[in-house]
Design a protein around this nucleic acid. Structure first.
Lengths: 103, 103
DNA sequence: TGTATTATTGCATCATGATGCAATGACACA
DNA sequence: TGTGTCATTGCATCATGATGCAATAATACA
């Protein structure tokens, strides 16, 4: 199942299947930020952060705008937060229901 | 980022990041089915289908019940359909907005 | 103009998901 | 008890995502 043949929805979920990319989305919820700011908050190489952001950009989750020499990243579609919230609820309920497995 | 250390939400999205697993969820929307029935509808080995289903079970998306010698798989939490519907809308709007890239 | 900062990309390496075959276990039923 | 079906798991292989280093391109600014 290579990239271009993959269903866009699967690809979309794949973009969200990373702790660090979810963290990036969370960080951008506050306000738009550039690559350096975002890199300071995660503990990984700037090239990795850049690639994570590229993945989110390619799916329209994140957009960019140039301003005074900085490239600012921001959330392109706020419905992503509804999606993540609903996921939090589903996962949280599941964990409560199965606390024996994780307690 | 290995399995147990991964955020459950990332893991959840990972489970949805596969055409075939999304297809399985779709097939189970109609009614509960067993492994043989599901395997007939996808074009892959039964062992692969079993593993896909296991992944969905581990995240509480799919549950099972034994009945007359068959193991029936069914959707455990119907909110998964809300999630997928919202995703369809986001992805669809994104493609419309960028039709030049995909037309 | 020269230097430092910002962001991306090539490359190599490692980890992990995807797949199919074969073996095994569980179980219904003749 | 023997046989066939159903479902899972071990194993090997391939594809792909994750990561860090280094190089490059673009550009702000002294």
């Amino acid at each position: 199942m290579t990239a271009p043949a993959m269903d866009p929805r699967s690809r979309f979920f794949l973009a969200l299947s990373s702790d660090q990319r979810l963290k990036l989305i969370e960080l951008l919820k506050e306000k738009e930020k550039n690559l350096s700011e975002l890199t300071k908050e995660l503990n990984i190489d700037v090239s990795v952060v850049s690639r994570h952001l590229m993945m989110l950009r390619n799916l329209g989750i994140v957009s960019t705008k140039k301003d005074k020499g900085y490239l600012y990243f921001f959330i392109a579609d706020n419905r992503i937060f509804d999606l993540i919230l609903l996921t939090n609820q589903i996962v949280s309920d599941w964990f409560k229901h199965n606390q024996k497995m994780f307690g």
